[in-house]
């Protein structure tokens, strides 16, 4: 019996050892294939399911259920950028005043808010609200066999569920991000001018001198790239959830972890690619 098995699988020991390396690789391959399917399904979505797309946009911007109570995605993003913008004000003013250049807090606002706080905080907030929401929704649809029902009804489920969420995310995120960035600017200004009593003229001078429109355009581009990655990852984990109610919860946690890590690497490499070694930053001219 055992000899038969050995002859069936030559190098059995080697195969078993290799399986440990190959399984994760295979999983990455399957994920990549699924992302390809989702992106390709957007064409189907645009032809057949425009109504669903509009519905998703409405749901994503204002949220449903408990999210709507605290202002939906809009409220969460504005709140988080507001709090980190205030942090830029508090830390910036205190650190700058130790070397006597607290007048430059306006510069800190226009520089750090656009290049760091805005994109990173928006990524975190989107993963928590839109992303985790999508995973929970799709996961509970999967375990109650609603996705199979969609397929039986002849609806292309990947286009209808995943594609619509990716496209809706991209459409929704641009105005959302602009609101969040404004909230960060306002928070820094309020903290600096009202709490620490800096003259508003000084603040505004340095703020508008160093506010670079092309930086803002690039940061919007970063956020759009991030939202595509976030929605792809979260819809994948939701669509392929298994293991009952607890499995959906675990899928949400796994998706949040994966998307946070991936998006931060995306932001980092996009920043390096866009701003480069010299940084596209000129203090003196």
């Amino acid at each position: 019996m055992s000899t038969a098995q050995v002859s069936q699988h030559p190098f059995g020991r080697l195969r078993r050892a290799g399986r440990g390396f190959i399984t994760p690789l295979k999983r990455i391959g399957e994920q990549a294939q699924f992302y390809g399917l989702t992106l390709r399904s957007i064409a189907d979505l645009m032809v057949h399911y425009k109504g669903e797309l509009v519905r998703q946009i409405a749901i994503m911007s204002l949220g449903t259920g408990a999210l709507a109570v605290i202002g939906g995605t809009v409220g969460v993003i504005c709140f988080m950028t507001l709090s980190l913008g205030a942090d830029v004000g508090v830390s910036g003013y205190n650190q700058f005043s130790t070397v006597g250049v607290e007048a430059l807090v306006g510069f800190a606002s226009s520089y750090f808010n656009v290049r760091f706080v805005g994109p990173v905080v928006t990524a975190i907030a989107l993963a928590a609200t839109l992303g985790a929401g999508a995973t929970a929704q799709l996961g509970s649809m999967r375990i109650s066999e609603e996705i199979d029902a969609l397929e039986v009804m002849g609806i292309r489920s990947i286009a209808y569920l995943n594609g619509s969420r990716v496209v809706a995310g991209v459409i929704v995120v641009v105005p959302l991000y602009c609101l969040g960035l404004m909230a960060a600017f306002i928070a820094t200004q309020v903290v600096t001018v009202m709490l620490y009593g800096q003259s508003s003229g000084v603040y505004n001078h340095y703020f508008s001198t160093f506010l670079n429109p092309s930086d803002i355009m690039w940061s919007i581009f970063q956020v759009v790239a991030m939202v595509v990655v976030i929605m792809l990852i979260h819809t994948y984990y939701g669509y392929n959830a298994t293991g009952g109610p607890a499995g959906v919860g675990e899928a949400v946690g796994r998706a949040v972890r994966a998307s946070l890590i991936t998006t931060l690497f995306v932001v980092l490499f996009l920043s390096l690619a866009i701003y480069g070694q010299s940084g596209n930053f000129h203090l003196s001219d």
């Binding site: 985790a132 995973t135 109610p245 607890a246 959906v248 949400v252």
Partner: peptide, 11 residues
Amino acid sequence: GPAGVGNAVNE
């Protein structure tokens, strides 16, 4: 029920 768990994790 089951769908509630996913939503609770999201929240």
